[in-house]
Write a protein that binds this DNA or RNA. Structure first.
Lengths: 156, 156
DNA sequence: GTGAATGCAAAACCTTTGCAACTGG
DNA sequence: CCAGTTGCAAAGGTTTTGCATTCAC
């Protein structure tokens, strides 16, 4: 098993960038390597199914369940972030920096938006004193600069 | 039908607060009234199933599908916001002010956090010039002041 | 009266799981 | 060698849908 019961994130070796540092307890299989490879190659926030289709070209026998497993392992290893926008399928993102996600309602693209002042951000919120924040998830929707807001584009 | 194909939000009459202003095209049924009533009576961000259970006491014959329908109508009428945290079931919130959601990892409660400076918030983000933001969704996770971070509370 | 809304059950959808076979270290 | 991982198929939980009936306007 060991499907579930992930170690505490603080136990993990900080990512070695080149070598996919999954941390102890995790084996480096070709499925996991390829899933991670797909995510970093094209940072377009694919869904599990999209990852599956891309990985199949390298590992034809891979199953969707394994892709879900790999994505879960990578997420718990801290190498990948799961991005949930509305009720749509989860998307995955190898950008570990503190950032928001912008979803264009015209072209459907999802873009990373850097947070260049986390303090200002927290100051903008009326947080009760004594609140401890572990994680912040910011999703923005609208139109990106290249999508003219006047033209009703295909929307995807 | 008319299930789907909602009018443009700009066409809607601004809420009359007392009288549940659903807008033209929408009929005021007792199911819709009660669903809205339940949401405003106890602003604890219930899921559709929780709303269903509460409404059943007033409208015993209501079905879960109708609750989903009502919540969708209320959302599209702009009277209610759908709140999506991770992959968990959607929750619903009658607070129309610009606000974030704080989810306590100890007690599980979801709290509204006012955004007292929307400009500072946007300034904290590195948005490409020309980006038009329609909607902002901010979800925070951590421990609320009343949950001592040391004690491993039931977590729910 | 008439079209919109409801209730029911069944379907759709994304995701997780049980288990036997396999494999990385 | 052996626990962790895979692949498959089947189950799970949330949300949507088809359709006949009911109801708001």
């Amino acid at each position: 098993m060991a499907r579930k019961n992930f170690p505490d994130p603080t136990d993990l070796t900080p990512s070695g960038e080149g070598g996919l540092a999954l941390g102890p307890e995790f084996r480096l299989t070709k499925q996991r390597r390829e899933v991670f490879e797909v995510l970093t190659a094209q940072r377009d926030h694919p869904t599990a199914t999209e990852v599956f289709m891309r990985v199949k070209e390298k590992v034809p026998g891979i199953s969707l369940a394994t892709v879900y497993n790999c994505l879960e392992t990578l997420t718990h290893s801290g190498l990948v972030r799961q991005v949930n926008l509305d009720r749509s399928p989860s998307r995955y993102c190898p950008n570990l920096e503190d950032h928001a996600h912008f979803h264009c309602e015209s072209c459907g693209h999802i873009t990373d938006i850097a947070i260049h002042d986390p303090c200002a951000l927290q100051a903008a919120l009326a947080l009760p004193p004594g609140t401890h924040i572990h994680r912040t998830e910011i999703a923005l929707r609208g139109h990106c600069p290249t999508c003219t807001p006047s033209a009703k584009a295909p929307q995807n």
